[in-house]
Design a protein around this nucleic acid. Structure first.
Lengths: 346, 346
DNA sequence: CTGAAAGCGCTTACAG
DNA sequence: CTGAAAGCGCTTACAG
């Protein structure tokens, strides 16, 4: 009857439900539920009748409804800066793999480095009742997530720390990595080293700058503030900054680039120069080894960041709600390829 | 009372509902619903009381429940090969932006080029009742999606065509692009041109091979089958293939690489060679212009593929269910950077 | 082994 | 302007 009521043909947006299957198979709703979920306690004959009805009707369980009753949605959210950025691809994929291993789907969105959009997205995901949230912060105040976390949304911050709340955080050792990279340049004889980085309000940028200053200080070198340039990482600004510190009577002989966008632009600037200038960049990038010279970098493991964060999230979900928030820092790795081993021009 | 029943403190996984808000504000459920959804017909005073209860309780509407009643979930699914592949980043992001403009969230997953996993993922998304599906096929039989499409899941295939079903498809002009690239090499004097591509069961690979053969034939050149190598695109196989066609008494003087992974490996092989060999690659990649020589490529617009597909999907969702499936082909673009303009060695 | 009733948290359709 | 009842499609808790 239910069938007839909805018409003979399957119509758009009119999907069969367990009720329809039950009616067709001549069994109760619960029996259909048992078969669909592979529960025991159904005679083979009954099961066959239900299976036939399922096939005939093209039934597929509505997991949205299931989830409402169950409590957990078996989905987690990922808020990142930009899905199109090559740094976030491997990170996303790693989060996805861990989610998959736990039977969860991944909903993700880009904040476009806009704190309001980050908040809007994160809260929309909470409204969908994701079980957990992996956030790569764009903003620096995450108090808006406090009620959600309290309500049980497992939340882990990655790449940058949470702002003004206590929460699990997985970071790269930005300070140590930058310090190592600059120390590497110093070891190769440089004393005037430039630093071009992102806006200092961004945690990673500030940490890397701090690493630069620490390495210089460790070596007893004084930083001329004309060697330091912070701001947006668009090609225009970076190019101007690089050209400025490479000219004048006392130009820098080496540059430490604060992230891969900066590195690429600096490579372009250096390609147009006559004399060799050393370069070490934070973040590895594809083909860095194929350039001439190969680009020496401080590599961070984007996939490991994602994996570590997602594993932490599921551990919390699997019973560890009351564990104290932890801050995990992953090591970086210097990969020497040539550009960082050039000595200062005589 | 409801409040007391669930304890004074907000406990994990115990979120306030509209019922709780209604009880606290001393109004009916429907009135809370009206305030939450910004519907008219509520006195300012009532509204204020409800708002206060919402704040006090930390209420956030459960969109999962809402969705169950509404029918549409305001979410779409994206099944792609690998989120970590730089080709899919911009494509994903473009789909996300269109979804966002339509108030929908994006759930995505990687098939890892495995047809079974593609199916599992796509059907899991259908079970969640996504409104639509953007699929980058791994398999070549999509009949499993027929009931879903009939039931109203708007579905668009991207990058590769759907197998054995009629459905909207957005593709790059793989044939034309490859033909143009090979013709470009012929124009620069080459007559022995190699082709290294992916497995021919993959549609894009087959089309590009067809373009290669067409260009050769158009120029009256006969293809020696020793110049053609098809298979997986791992570095080992590609390297062996390239080295084979570059050696012997009649080596190729130019190579057309079937995708960016192949291109990168070929660049590495050529870097170790003494004489110059021309190269054109299908797919653009970052820093292609910084290599020496810059790599000439046939570029496809990944973002445009994603955007076009998502727009098509939402058009269907916004009333166009009964439009006939369409096949949209986007043009490719040759970008000359040096490697494709090298003449044959004398 | 099987099923009727209640409920997950909302919205819809309706009545006052 | 406001709210009680029914229902979205499932699962839970229970009874037979």
């Amino acid at each position: 009857m239910a069938e007839t009521a909805r018409g003979t043909e399957s119509r758009y947006g009119n999907r069969p439900t367990m009720k329809d299957v039950a009616a067709r198979a001549g069994v109760g709703l619960k029996t259909v539920s048992r078969v669909v979920n592979g529960e025991s306690g159904v005679t083979p004959d009954t099961e066959r009748r239900v299976q036939e009805a399922i096939e005939a009707l093209g039934f597929r369980r509505n997991d949205s409804a299931r989830v409402l009753r169950k409590g957990r949605t078996a989905s987690i959210g990922l808020v990142l800066e930009d899905l199109a950025d090559p740094f976030y691809g491997p990170l996303s994929r790693a989060v996805e793999e861990v989610a998959r291993a736990h039977g969860a789907l991944l909903i993700n969105g880009s904040s476009a480095e806009d704190p309001d959009r980050e908040q809007e997205l994160a809260l929309a995901l909470c409204a969908r009742r994701v079980d957990g949230l992996v956030v790569i912060p764009a903003g620096d105040d995450h108090r808006y997530l406090e009620p959600e976390i309290k309500a049980g949304v497992a939340t882990v911050f990655v790449d940058r720390p949470a702002g003004r709340i206590e929460a699990d955080t997985v970071l790269s050792d930005n300070f140590g990595g930058a310090r190592d990279g600059v120390a590497h340049l110093i070891e190769h004889g440089h004393r005037r080293i430039g630093f071009i980085g992102d806006q200092p309000r961004i945690h990673t940028a500030a940490e890397r700058l701090r690493g630069y200053r620490a390495a210089m200080e460790d070596a007893g070198l004084t930083v001329d503030e004309a060697w330091v340039s912070l701001g947006t990482t668009d090609a225009g600004r970076v190019r101007t900054a690089a050209e400025a510190m490479l000219s004048g009577p006392e130009p820098v002989t080496a540059i430490f680039a604060g992230n891969n966008r900066v590195t690429v632009t600096v490579v372009r600037v250096l390609a147009g120069l006559s004399g060799p200038v050393a370069l070490v960049g934070f973040d590895d990038f594809e083909l860095a080894d194929l350039l001439q010279p190969g680009v020496t970098v401080i590599a961070q493991d984007a996939a490991a960041l994602g994996r570590t964060a997602a594993e932490r999230l599921f551990r919390r979900l699997d019973g560890g709600q009351d564990v104290a928030p932890e801050r995990i820092e992953l090591a970086t790795r210097l990969i020497a390829r040539g550009s960082g081993e050039i000595g200062p021009a005589r």
